[in-house]
Design a protein around this nucleic acid. Structure first.
Lengths: 332, 332
DNA sequence: GTGAAAGCGCTAACAT
DNA sequence: ATGTTAGCGCTTTCAC
């Protein structure tokens, strides 16, 4: 059996209360007792039991993080940020790969495990989830996602503006035959918002949008490939494509290469996310950066603030920026 | 306050013991009491408190996973497998991003949090770590890593054989001027073993190795780029390169493109890992696959077996295979 | 088949 | 400054 607080109390000839006091730095012990206790702790290699602590404190110092897909490059960046910040504040993180389906089950598990808060990523917070989250009475934060409720704070970038600027970037380089490979309109954030930003930029610059230049994907590489094949059929005179995820942009690159279309000479492409992938493809991808690690850090910090103060915090829009690499050519 | 077992006992007019019995399906209650209890549970939305359970059962149903880098594509694949299997067996997973430095600290945290077992990935298990792990008296499993101890089971691929076969693959395609971009010799697994496999294959096929064709990297994209630049200086007549990670292989591709060297026409390249990245680069990368998700799943299952049975399990070598894509050209 | 009670390892009154 | 004690929410003897 591992030594308990009783063992150190006994060996140090003090009460468990005193040991607890020095352990938690509460007032009420002399320097000599402190030393005595500390020595015993070291000697018998005592480690406090966080489970016992949690039972009484009603705090487990752990947060749960839900991802639809842990293994995506996007998720792992966010996770990195979350983990970093959480650890700094003495919290641990439990990961849940919902695969977009086991969400309710995980919510139950996290509830039973008494996590102090939950971060929800990349998946719209359905009302169904929101309800159980409310009954759990713990803080929740959304990263790269939204909800119908205005009581759940989120951390996102301004998707519409970012898409607007990406499109404008292409326009400023002299492109007018611009295509978009986007998510669906049902996707309330990364879907519609980016489409709208794109459309708006075209309109503001007096460019007529041609629906043949809009293909729907699902943010994955595969869907980017498929979308590009379709685009090549429908609008072969396109000179630039805005793919609303780097993975899809990589698909565009792959299919372009397959068809002997040179990027950026014959076709310009701009992505979205700035994953590590973006600099690994050929040519390196110009893209809209979402500060994913920062967003994760920020989210964890905000969540922990909510946990510790019990107060709501505001949602935040994080800054995006265009990272210029070599996949866009200027026509002028 | 959340309802406790007492609340359901009271409301169902039974003792807490009985509630506990039906909760855990222990013998000793009639069908009617069971129904009564179950109804109350549903009615007041009672959820057992896993923390209280853990305190008494000495089992938290959670495992800790240590990664030197959570955000690497390799780690996230393994994590996906671990998470999947863990969840299936009713375990949760706590992730720890050691960044190769906070390991000892995390070990302490995991100990205090009373995790039931630990999976250690991609980082050699130093004796220092091993000692504290032993004092924790919980099962440990290594994935893609090793230790000096033979009491810690691991899950790996046969790195030497895999490297041998990758090299042989190149040789069979008629290549003789083969370079390797590898990890260091200090890296006891992915480092030396792959180098040795490479060397052995050359030797077995009567090909003289030229040290100018060996450049050291650290498995990252950046190091692959740097290594490729060096290689181009030192041995420009190389016709094929074996990069012992896909990320480094991607670096080779990038630098080759920058120098106008066409792959695979002028230079063949084979990678290692088969990350998603491998099919996203241009040209799609021929590579040695490590079944990362499977390895994660397998590791979690084995660890859980150890936790539940208290018995040691054997180490396992998982099958690798060469995935042929388009980065290698046959010279014959 | 069911209940009373002890206790897991700790913290937090409340005494002294 | 330090000790005693009552729980936190649960499981598990041991009675009945």
């Amino acid at each position: 059996m591992n030594p308990t607080i009783k063992d150190v109390a006994k060996k140090a000839n003090v009460s468990v209360a005193t040991v607890s006091r020095v352990l938690n730095n509460l007032p009420g012990f002399s320097d000599k007792t402190k030393q005595k206790v500390l020595n015993v702790i070291k000697e018998i290699e005592y480690q406090p039991n966080a489970i016992a602590r949690g039972l009484i404190n009603k705090r487990t110092q752990t947060i749960g993080v839900m991802f639809p897909s842990v293994s995506s490059m996007l998720s792992s960046m966010i996770l990195k940020g979350i983990e970093q910040a959480a650890h700094q504040h003495n919290f641990s993180v439990m990961v849940c790969n919902t695969a977009g389906i086991r969400t309710m089950e995980y919510l139950r598990v996290l509830g039973e495990k008494q996590v102090d808060g939950i971060i929800f990523t990349s998946e719209f917070l359905k009302d169904e989830y929101h309800r159980v989250l409310q009954s759990m009475k713990i803080p929740v934060l959304l990263v790269l996602s939204g909800s119908h409720s205005n009581t759940v704070p989120y951390v996102i970038v301004d998707d519409k503006l970012a898409a607007y600027q990406a499109t404008e970037y292409l326009i400023k380089k002299g492109h007018t035959k611009i295509a978009i490979i986007s998510g669906t309109n049902e996707d309330l954030l990364a879907g519609v918002l980016r489409i709208n930003g794109f459309l708006q930029a075209l309109q503001d610059n007096g460019i007529q949008h041609n629906d043949q230049r809009h293909v729907i994907g699902d943010f994955t590489f595969k869907s980017g490939c498929d979308a590009m094949e379709i685009l090549l059929q429908r609008a072969p005179d396109t000179t630039a494509v805005f793919a609303t995820s780097d993975e899809m942009a990589a698909g565009v690159l792959t299919v372009a290469a397959k068809h002997g279309i040179r990027v950026p000479e014959q076709l310009s492409v701009i992505g979205f996310d700035n994953l590590k992938l973006a600099e690994m493809v050929t040519p390196p991808l110009t893209t809209v950066e979402q500060p994913l690690i920062k967003m994760g850090e920020y989210a964890a910090e905000k969540l922990i603030t909510m946990i510790e103060t019990g107060k709501m915090i505001d949602s935040s829009i994080m800054p995006h920026r265009i990272v210029e690499r070599q996949s866009v050519k200027s026509l002028i």
